[in-house]
Design a binder for these strands. Structure first.
Length: 255
DNA sequence: ATGGTAGAGTGTCTA
């Protein structure tokens, strides 16, 4: 069983790449972030035509998340129940025997800024939501764009980025606090490539130079992590014409 | 140094 997370940076522009992934890779579940469209504009029909269910929560121009799955999603959550927010950043559902949570964590822009404070508040509420989820469900898969580089080995120039946005101690602490609830950082434990970068800035040819970061993650509850076989960053999708700045990331679980 | 590229939507904002 394959599960994919992918920040599409506009579903409108990336719909063709999405359809190729659904046809060629055939994941059981795929979580999308940064739809950048209102919910009604999500390509539900195209996804259904390929045999998948889809749920989405979008807004004009920014943010937006979706879950696509072979099995019908049930008990759907949109947004954090414990954090009032106009920004569409979370969608969760029960798919088969898994509770699946797909997130687009705030970027934070600059350490110390208002957006950074919002990011830390959002992460705190997300932490509490994950704690509740682990109490209710045995098999939990959390995936998405966390906008956090967990360790120095996850960024191309750690000395340049030390203390900066995506790499600050407060962000890394928030990430580790989530792991401490009882999750495994699946890509780090079951890495098959080195480095495991998932995002490369469009500017200055950073993908060609492999100047990237690992900011897209899978957190698996201990129970489901025992089914994990391997993970893979789909770099060939980042290398396509008119790509997202993120590569899709796949994990493979025993059925 | 406050760039640089892309996407949304049309003057900037966000990443």
């Amino acid at each position: 069983m394959k599960i994919i997370t992918w920040n599409v940076n506009s579903i409108n522009v990336r719909q063709v790449h999405l359809e190729e992934i659904l046809k060629d890779v055939k994941p059981a579940i795929i979580g999308l972030q940064e739809l950048k469209c209102e919910t009604a504009s999500f390509p539900f029909d195209a996804v259904k035509a390929l045999g998948y269910h889809a749920i989405a929560s979008g807004q004009k121009a920014y943010n937006g998340v979706a879950l696509i799955s072979e099995v019908e999603p049930k008990d759907i959550d949109v947004n954090l129940p414990n954090f009032e927010d106009d920004q569409q950043r979370l969608i969760a559902a029960t798919i088969g025997d898994c509770r699946v949570i797909n997130v687009y964590v705030p970027n934070g822009q600059k350490v110390g800024s208002e957006k950074y404070e919002y990011k830390l508040r959002w992460l705190s509420a997300f932490h509490d939501y994950l704690k509740d989820t682990l109490e209710k469900y045995e098999n939990v898969v959390v995936m998405g764009d966390f906008n956090i580089v967990p360790k120095d080995e996850d960024v191309y120039a750690p000395e340049l980025w030390r203390g900066k946005i995506l790499c600050s101690d407060q962000e890394r602490t928030a990430f580790n606090d989530m792991l401490s609830l009882g999750f495994v950082d699946a890509l780090r434990i079951f890495a098959t490539q080195d480095p495991m970068f998932t995002w490369w800035d469009y500017r200055q040819g950073q993908f060609e130079k492999d100047e990237g970061m690992r900011i897209d993650h899978f957190l698996l509850s201990k129970n489901i992590s025992s089914r994990m076989m391997r993970s893979e960053v789909l770099r060939e999708v980042r290398a396509k014409e008119r790509p997202s700045d993120h590569a899709p990331v796949a994990i493979y679980l025993k059925d």
